[in-house]
Design a protein around this nucleic acid. Structure first.
Length: 657
DNA sequence: AGCACGCCGACT
DNA sequence: GTCGGCGTGCTC
């Protein structure tokens, strides 16, 4: 008997080995083996068992060495098969990833020590919370696929439900997967659970902030089929786990679940596939559930629960302010109502968050005379002004001195407009308006320095800072009881972002930030400043968030976007833009041909130049495929990849931005 | 992906 | 004469 294997080290061709006499023949396909290759030993995945050799063999066949130790998981093979066909990858990909972390060397990690583990123990659940737990306990005890969506307003105590259900699952000797959309949240959650559930429960963090030693300890547990709690972002969902009993996806709406690099696997989707194959319950929780999940509640009978009450504090009052209306004000970016509210809170010695939801692109420099914008020589993005003296590229880190005359029309400095607004600038404005306030900035630049970041968060918690100015980073996870005012400076920046889910993600973000207010106090306020009118502002009240679903779904149906239809992206990359354009057009033609030949019901869009179409001298184009049926999209794409294009091709089903 | 082989220039 | 740079080709 022989096996046909594929090497994990990137060597493409499959090889044939003899099975040692002592091996079982059953269940070899999908297992990892060690095989001799020239003078070394390599790991490989068994693709096929061959009873006899192919006739045309001219080389001598060597014998495989040993089967590799791998945690048993009855559903793993089917799961990696399904995942790999959905993401148009080879099943080998998942084994490579697992292998990669196993061979990881120990390295110093600067672990985020942000201390948020509030020690509230043995809390009695509210009736809202209890009814969810009561519904799920029977399913945990006799498992089946049971997708459950929990819409819990900010501060409603979803964590308490998770804790109960984790304990119930462990009682049945099963493993729990707890997933969060960001490493920092996973770190926080791990700490919280360890302090509140007690040391006798094996809890493992499993993400980039965890040491290789700890990861290996988890691996050993998995080998021995021990029931554990695994907390992570992307990695845990592709691990082989013998006795999986429950998956929890917290902040399920968050785009952080989609991996940043290709292949852009979405942990939320992978987890759903896994739960379905393993016949276990899966819980998705969020204060702002995704349209997609709400759609599944409606069309696919997912269980749905709502937590409409806050554990402590009360909901903030929400006030919408139009920036374009003619207020006479000291500064364009701080409207009169906001200025007054800040002054008011400062005298009451309460805390304020000022939020700027800019995303990637920010304030660039533009000539008022000729319209020229300074941009990066290597990437196609505008350069960002730093400290009013430097221009920096957000993608490749290129930097140069700020220009004082326009390089195109030679106009002077007074004609150079530093468009947009950044957190730095806001701090300066606020310092002028409120000279006695203690103001700090917490954006991505500040978070790169972990120590400084921790210090800022700590000082804000200790009320040594009155106003915290920040971007996305402050919207996630943190709990600042002293905050009674949240000011959102420019709510509509992202609404014009060229993606179909712009309204959804903007509203989710606004509600999440607004939710930072009034966690402890009865009276708080959120001021939302905007340039334009938009329907999302009708749904800023988070208790009524689900009404947004109806409105948005109608809109998506009109323009044929998910979740009504399926949607996938093909990204093409090449250093030569001419070749890239040729090949993208060729792919479009080919797709159309394939669709016609196979009678596929697909719509092809593009090729489009993405907003950032050139990064580090690599050009990019995007092609989109729509269809009522994902398998038709996959069929079309699989026809494309067998042709030998010189561009790099990346396939993303259901892309999020 | 590794690793050996081999062909050519630099150096004790 | 030998050491070592890396281009080429092979792996069951």
């Amino acid at each position: 008997m022989f096996i046909q294997v594929k090497l994990l080290n990137g060597f493409q061709e499959s090889l044939i080995y003899k099975i040692p006499a002592s091996w079982p023949i059953e269940q070899l396909v999908g297992s990892l083996v060690k095989v001799p290759l020239q003078k070394r030993t390599e790991s490989a995945l068994i693709q096929q068992v061959l009873p006899t050799l192919p006739a045309d063999i001219t080389f001598k066949i060597r014998e495989a060495i040993s089967l590799e130790q791998f945690p048993s998981d009855a559903h793993f093979s089917a799961y990696t098969q399904q995942l790999s066909s959905y993401y148009a990858l080879e099943p080998l990909y998942f084994f490579k990833r697992i292998r990669h972390f196993l061979s990881e060397k120990e390295q110093e990690l600067d672990i985020d020590q942000t201390n948020q583990a509030a020690s509230q123990q043995n809390i009695t659940l509210t009736s809202e919370q209890q009814s969810i737990v009561d519904d799920l306990i029977p399913v945990i005890n006799s498992p089946r696929y049971y997708p459950t969506l929990i819409h819990g307003v900010t501060g409603s105590g979803k964590t308490e439900i998770y804790k109960q259900l984790i304990q119930e699952t462990l009682k049945t000797q099963k493993t729990v997967l707890l997933l969060l959309p960001e490493v920092s949240l996973a770190v926080q959650f791990t700490k919280l659970l360890k302090s509140q559930l007690g040391l006798e429960i094996p809890i493992y963090g499993f993400h980039s902030a965890v040491s290789a030693k700890e990861k290996r300890a988890l691996w050993t547990s998995l080998m021995h089929q021990k029931p554990v709690v695994i907390i992570g972002v992307h990695l845990p969902v592709i691990m082989p786990i013998a006795q999986l009993g429950l998956i929890i996806i917290d902040e399920e709406h968050d785009i952080g679940y989609q991996e940043k690099k290709h292949p852009k696997i979405n942990t939320r989707e992978a987890a759903l596939m896994r739960a379905q194959l393993a016949h276990i319950p899966i819980i998705l929780g969020s204060a702002t559930p995704s349209i997609h999940s709400l759609y599944c509640v409606e069309k696919r009978n997912w269980k749905f629960f709502q937590l409409k009450n806050r554990f402590a504090g009360a909901f903030p009052k929400i006030k919408l302010v139009k920036l374009t209306e003619e207020y006479k004000r000291k500064n364009f970016w701080i409207s009169r109502p906001l200025e007054q509210a800040i002054a008011d809170r400062l005298t009451k010695k309460e805390q304020i968050i000022i939020f700027l939801n800019r995303r990637g692109f920010s304030f660039f420099i533009q000539c008022k005379s000729c319209g020229h914008i300074e941009s990066c020589p290597a990437c196609s993005v505008s350069l960002t002004v730093h400290h009013n003296q430097e221009l920096k590229c957000h993608y490749c880190n290129f930097s140069k001195k700020i220009i004082i005359t326009c390089p195109v029309c030679k106009a002077g400095e007074d004609q150079l407009l530093k468009k947009g607004i950044g957190t730095q600038q806001i701090v300066t404005i606020l310092e002028k308006l409120f000279p006695h306030a203690r103001i700090a900035r917490a954006d991505l630049d500040a978070t790169v320095n972990k120590k400084k970041w921790q210090e800022i968060i700590h000082n804000f918690e200790e009320k040594k800072i009155d106003i915290l100015v920040g971007t996305q980073t402050i919207t996630k996870g943190y709990h600042f009881p002293g905050v009674t005012l949240v000011g959102i400076l420019w709510a509509d920046i992202n609404l014009s972002f060229p993606v179909y889910n712009a309204a959804e993600s903007t509203l989710q973000q606004l509600i999440q930030v607004a939710g930072r207010a009034g966690r402890q106090t009865a009276e708080s306020e959120v001021i939302v400043q905007t340039m334009i009118n938009h329907y999302i502002y009708d749904y800023l009240n988070e208790v009524n968030y689900t009404q947004f679903y109806k409105h948005e779904l109608k809109h998506r149906a009109e323009v044929a976007y998910p979740p009504i239809i399926r949607f996938a992206e093909i990204e093409l990359k090449h250093s030569d833009p001419v070749l890239l354009d040729q090949e993208s057009n060729d792919i479009i033609q080919n797709l159309e041909l394939i669709a016609e030949k196979n009678q596929l019901n697909i719509t092809i869009l593009g090729p489009a130049q993405p907003p950032v179409h050139k990064i580090q001298h690599m050009h990019a184009r995007k092609i989109y495929i729509k269809s009522p049926d994902i398998s038709q999209i996959l069929k079309a794409y699989n026809h494309i990849i067998i042709k030998n294009y010189t561009s790099f091709l990346y396939f993303t089903p259901n892309p999020l931005q």
